[in-house]
Design a protein around this nucleic acid. Sequence first.
DNA 1: CTGGGTGTTCAATGGGTATCGAACACTTTG
DNA 2: CAAAGTGTTCGATACCCATTGAACACCCAG
Lengths: 103, 103
Amino acid sequence: MGHRAEPEHTHPDDVPVQAVFAALADPVRLGIVRELAGSPEWTRACGSFDVPVGKAALSHHFAVLRSAGLIEQRDDGAKRVNRLRCAEFEARFPGLLDLVVRG
Amino acid sequence: MGHRAEPEHTHPDDVPVQAVFAALADPVRLGIVRELAGSPEWTRACGSFDVPVGKAALSHHFAVLRSAGLIEQRDDGAKRVNRLRCAEFEARFPGLLDLVVRG
DNA sequence: CTGGGTGTTCAATGGGTATCGAACACTTTG
DNA sequence: CAAAGTGTTCGATACCCATTGAACACCCAG
């Protein structure tokens, strides 16, 4: 009954703008964020996204999104589910998330 | 009285968000935009910015900012002066420029 | 016309990072 | 327990891009 190492989260307040730009400059990550924005919180597991990369790269992208303060992750059984940090992110970077979604 | 090749401009409306993020993900370009935001239009020549790179790299960065729809350039004698496309950019990406300046 | 200043282009180099395959850890189901 | 599913980590590879120095073009002041 061992625990799995919980992912390290970074609050949007502790993230420089440049890091956010770098995180969103990648097409795969941008797609993930958009897909996540259209789903209810905690409903999307990491493997449920329509991305053209393998699991290894995917895991890397989620780590980047986490350290950019864009997403939060929680373990739910064997899966790791995600949510977009809409409120916190909007408070720190007003309007940014809207721009991402609208394209 | 030959003309010098005028720089190719791209209107913000024709720029995908991802390209803007990529442009602003670089520290040198971010610095240029910020410095430009604090100066009156058409007052700053390319060489007048406080950046830790040579002229060649600098010229490259300006080309990127141009093709991202962030700046406009005009030849003024031997110099090439710049302006931030505040209005057009704000219309296309509301709030983004503010985020850049505020850090 | 000559010289100094400004900016662009080119070829070459280096560094960062996106990607993959394989191995591993954990969970749930059979 | 065995097997299948989910996600992470590691080592290796490849590619993109920021940077440089040198050569060039243009403008202006002597």
